[in-house]
């Protein structure tokens, strides 16, 4: 049985009495590549923040690598790409290399690496060689997103959480990014949770689907989803077809 990376049991989250997640149960195992989909306000970002220990649950429990997320020590095993690109001030005086090196903080805090080699590798991988000394505010939206992706990948994490990673990428870069994720998942057995609105394309790259709408509506393989009569009646067979046709 593969290692359990995340386990949620009856997880609920409420903000000011408003229920955002309710009775969520699932297990993510090593090597899973999960497409996390759901409508706006369905709790996708809240769920991944719970996984990381950024938000506390109001009921139930969630574990990350066997510990409560806030207590998990080996943070260098995690790569995280936040949802919004505009979280930083575009006038912030910081270079591409400085931003990427932040991805190695957990590794450095564990005394494992100074990170120069890893930074060089990821800069080359994401085609950022000519941009390394540029200020982040001088880059286009797509270039900035590549830098933030590089920050999430630089420590070669075992578990990657990516919240809408490709919204600003052009189709070519987007393709090579998904190829890279596929390679990480296949060759290095990296576990991936990919939050996306691309419900029609999710089957192209992920191996499992989690459909969330405050609770888990479906979690399993695409074959199971595509042949499920329950899901056909829940989504309508046309929507089911849209999700399944590229798988």
């Amino acid at each position: 049985m593969p290692l359990t990376i995340v386990e949620a049991r009856d997880l609920s989250v409420a903000f000011d009495g408003r229920q955002v997640l309710s009775g969520v149960n699932f297990s993510i195992r090593q090597g899973d590549y999960i497409g996390l989909v759901g409508p706006n306000g369905s709790g996708k970002s809240t769920l991944i923040k719970c996984m990381l220990g950024l938000i506390r649950s109001s009921h139930g429990a969630i574990s990350l690598f066997g510990s409560a997320p806030v207590e998990m020590k080996n943070r260098e095993r995690i790569g995280y790409l936040p949802q919004r690109m505009d979280f930083f001030n575009p006038r912030f005086p910081t270079t591409v290399t400085e931003v990427i090196s932040q991805g190695l903080i957990a590794t450095r805090r564990a005394g494992k690496s100074s990170g120069r080699e890893e930074i060089e590798k990821v800069i080359e991988l994401l085609d950022l060689l000519g941009l390394r000394n540029r200020l982040i505010g001088e880059l286009s939206g797509g270039q900035q997103q590549r830098v933030i992706i590089a920050r999430a990948l630089v420590n070669e994490p075992d578990f990657l959480i990516l919240d809408e990673p490709t919204s600003a990428l052009d189709p070519e870069v987007r393709e090579s990014f998904f190829e890279l994720l596929h390679e990480l998942n296949e060759k290095k057995r990296a576990t991936i949770v990919l939050v996306t609105h691309d419900i029609g394309g999710v089957g192209q790259y992920a191996t499992k689907l989690m459909y969330l709408d405050k609770k888990v509506i479906f979690f399993g393989g695409f074959d199971e989803f595509c042949h499920s009569e329950n899901m056909a009646s829940f989504f309508g067979s046309a929507s089911q077809h849209i999700i399944c046709h590229k798988h």
Binding site: R75, P82, F87, F88, T94, S101, Q102, I105
Partner: peptide, 19 residues
């Protein structure tokens, strides 16, 4: 220095990194 820089640039990422 690294921790202060990370919190200043992106507090959420800093928290996720265990800072």
């Amino acid at each position: 220095f690294d921790e202060i820089f990370s919190i200043t640039f992106d507090e959420e990422f800093a928290r996720a990194s265990g800072i």
